[in-house]
Simulated scan of single mutants.
Amino acid sequence: MKEHFAPRHLQLDAGESLFFHTKAGSALISTSGTLLVTGTPRWLGEQVFRASTALEPGQSHTVVQSGWITVTAQHGGAACVLDTAWAKAPGRTGNVLLRYFSGMTRGVRAWLGRVEAI
């Protein structure tokens, strides 16, 4: 049986926090407001450490380790969480984008090769 994951949309008021479980490889995308993402607890030496990342609108963060993360809205905001199944299977749109950008890379390399030859 295949698991199908739907994106989760989070809406937070200023100062509100949400504590939830997510898998490694999931993407958290800030759609509005400033968000503070605090990762899962890890050991650093003999102390527990939790890395934090601030996200402005339009920025994304990839979860490194499965576990419980905290999302805090500093000025109110919204986010979308895409689970790992979406990252592993980009679908038709993702494949089109991959082909487009790989074609751009080849074009830029060819152009740079001509510029260096001059």
Rank of each mutant, 00 (worst) to 15 (best):
M1H: 10
K2A: 13
K2L: 11
E3K: 13
E3Y: 08
P7L: 04
Q11L: 08
Q11Y: 02
Q11S: 14
L12Q: 01
E16Y: 00
S17A: 10
L18H: 06
L18F: 03
K23E: 15
G25A: 08
S26Y: 01
L28V: 15
L28K: 02
I29F: 11
I29D: 03
I29K: 08
S30M: 05
G33I: 03
G33M: 05
T34E: 13
T34M: 09
L35G: 03
L36E: 10
V37P: 01
V37D: 01
T38V: 12
T38C: 01
T40L: 00
T40H: 08
P41R: 14
W43T: 12
W43F: 09
L44F: 08
Q47G: 05
Q47S: 14
V48W: 02
V48H: 00
F49L: 01
R50P: 00
R50K: 13
R50T: 09
A51C: 01
A51R: 12
S52R: 14
T53S: 13
A54N: 05
A54P: 02
A54I: 10
A54M: 10
L55Y: 07
G58C: 10
S60P: 02
T62I: 15
V63D: 03
V64I: 07
Q65F: 14
S66Q: 09
S66C: 06
G67I: 03
W68C: 02
W68D: 12
I69N: 05
I69T: 05
I69M: 04
V71H: 03
A73E: 02
A73S: 07
Q74D: 04
Q74V: 07
H75L: 03
A78E: 15
A78H: 12
A79C: 11
A79K: 04
V81G: 00
V81D: 01
L82I: 13
T84S: 09
T84C: 01
W86N: 06
W86Y: 08
A87D: 05
K88L: 11
K88V: 04
G91W: 05
R92I: 08
R92T: 12
T93N: 03
G94M: 06
V96E: 11
L97E: 11
L98I: 09
R99N: 10
R99F: 03
Y100S: 08
Y100W: 07
Y100E: 11
Y100A: 11
F101S: 04
S102D: 12
M104I: 13
R106L: 10
R106P: 00
G107L: 13
G107E: 13
V108I: 15
V108A: 14
V108G: 02
R109A: 14
R109H: 11
L112R: 15
L112F: 12
L112W: 10
L112Q: 15
R114M: 07
A117F: 06
